[in-house]
Design a protein around this nucleic acid. Structure first.
Lengths: 290, 290
DNA sequence: ACATATCTCTGACTGTAGTCAGACATCTGG
DNA sequence: CCAGATGTCTGACTACAGTCAGAGATATGT
């Protein structure tokens, strides 16, 4: 069977058996949409804005769902003191109880599915689903060009800096942040890209103009996502953006402690070149013709 | 992470990503229900009755869906000559074309999911999904006690005989079929059980009375389902039926060429005993105290 | 031949999901 | 302080999925 045939066969049998159960709102008498929202709020209280983002809902629709949950006494909505246009949502104690009930039902359903299997089969299924989960997540990460001042970009860069600070023997202190720096990473001369999964940035990197060539900056991949091919994918994406910006050469610097990054650049066809800047943290320099 | 946590995590991320895509069958401008129906008819033309059964639809709803597909010129509905209350449904040539288009879109979507993955990752994902598919199917197989003259039972036995005929060096010819034989495999003295998946029997076996003990007969597991633990599960089920019939001993015979069956009986706690019948095809005899 | 069962179809509903266009409140940069 | 941007909410819709109660045609057993 071909790859796609396996995937399609799995999809068919899985959604028919498990997905169908999911739809039945878990027998709570509450519509699926409300339950999904309730579950999401329970996982971590948030502003309506974040909820909209995470669940991909229309603002009017979300408002109505919140109103329904509020009417049932399950959630409390209050203005955000920091910005009173925004609203904070959190579960009431009745809501928390209902949330736990949903948890319980969901757990029960999972158990019922596993119950006919032997211990060995459960282990096999669990392992297989774990692998499939990682790879499906990896395959559906979306690469988005964002403004360098956006929350996603800031988080990606902050985590990049934090990682360097941890990896470098004497720590890492980024240059003071400037508006010019931001401008260099947005159109028409550059771009910043984040890989988003479940509304969280899991990788990021920028491309900018640097002396008649493109330079790739601040590439970072979340620790839990190493080995999922995300770095190479992001690198290829940044290269194609560089091409789109009119460049035929792309260069970058990195540090000797970042072994996996160096290996990745080697694999991706980059040549080692002489130092081309005075970045005190850089020890290795790479270049590639597009 | 516990087994259920892995399953639930997978379910969440999978349905969010792939399930969501599945709904977008709307890429065709046709509602999901109509597409599902069209797909089902394309897979094998049928009476409305069968379609209702297979898809679990209300008769009024199905009628309306058919009317819509008919209006689009995709299906033809005609009275069944054998029973003119019934109606036969089949695709028109335009319908067949649309069906192929659905196939193409589905294939494309599967490809798009796999596309970001490297070749090695695809292999890993495909293997994982293959294992998961088998086990999820196995876990949701339903064991049903059926009459030995029913279509399911007949199919299970016929395939059992066919397999023996293929495996035995000199073939296999079953004893002439008798009504007594059927009666021995139904209440109050026996039972015949089939494992059903997607409306097809995938395993089967009977238990009957044999000289103050229960005897398990004609146990068969579909070739594609070996290794899914279905045999052991069916065996345990038959043992519990034997207990319900008032027996404390269960025995069975088998042939030396059926190595996996023999291994299964050993694992299930059966002891090898002397020949207790004159079945010319039997070479190994087992017994177990319940 | 007749009562009864079976099968399909139509009309009349309900509930859920989701979209879109503003109204209104609040924040932010100049 | 004001203009424009941002965030939330309401009203008015649409589409889809599904249910239920008969009506009417056709088969079946006695």
């Amino acid at each position: 069977m071909s790859d796609t045939a396996v995937l399609r066969r799995f999809n068919r049998s899985y959604t028919q058996r498990i997905g169908a159960l999911e739809d039945s709102f878990l027998g709570t008498g509450r519509p699926l949409g409300e339950n999904r929202l309730l579950f999401e709020i329970g996982a971590s209280p948030a502003t309506t804005q974040e909820l909209r983002e995470r669940l991909g809902l229309d603002s009017g629709y979300l408002s109505r769902l919140l109103r329904a949950l509020e009417a049932d006494g399950l959630v409390e909505v209050s203005p955000d003191p920091a910005d009173r246009r925004r609203r904070l949502v959190r579960l009431t104690s009745a809501g928390a109880k209902t949330w736990e009930e949903l948890e319980r039902l969901s757990e029960q359903r999972a158990l019922r599915l596993l119950e006919p299997l032997t211990a060995r089969q459960r282990v096999r299924l669990t392992e297989a689903l774990g692998v499939a989960d990682l790879l499906v997540r990896a395959a559906t990460v979306s690469l988005e060009t964002v403004d360098p001042t956006s929350a996603y970009a800031r988080e990606a860069m902050d985590r990049y800096y934090a990682e360097l600070d941890e990896r470098f023997p004497h720590g890492f202190v980024p240059d003071p942040h400037t508006d010019d720096d931001d401008a260099s990473l947005r159109a028409p001369v550059g771009a910043f890209v984040v890989a988003v999964s479940d509304g969280r940035p899991v990788a990021g990197g920028g491309v900018r103009d640097y002396g008649h060539a493109a330079e790739i900056k601040r590439m970072w991949v979340d620790g839990g996502w190493r080995g999922a091919g995300l770095g190479s994918r992001l690198l290829r994406h940044l290269e194609s953006l560089a091409r789109g910006l009119g460049h035929t050469t792309v260069r970058l610097d990195t540090n000797e402690t970042l072994l996996d990054a160096i290996a990745m650049y080697d694999r991706a066809g980059y040549d080692r070149v002489d130092r081309y800047n005075d970045n005190p943290y850089a020890t290795h320099f790479f270049q590639k013709q597009l």
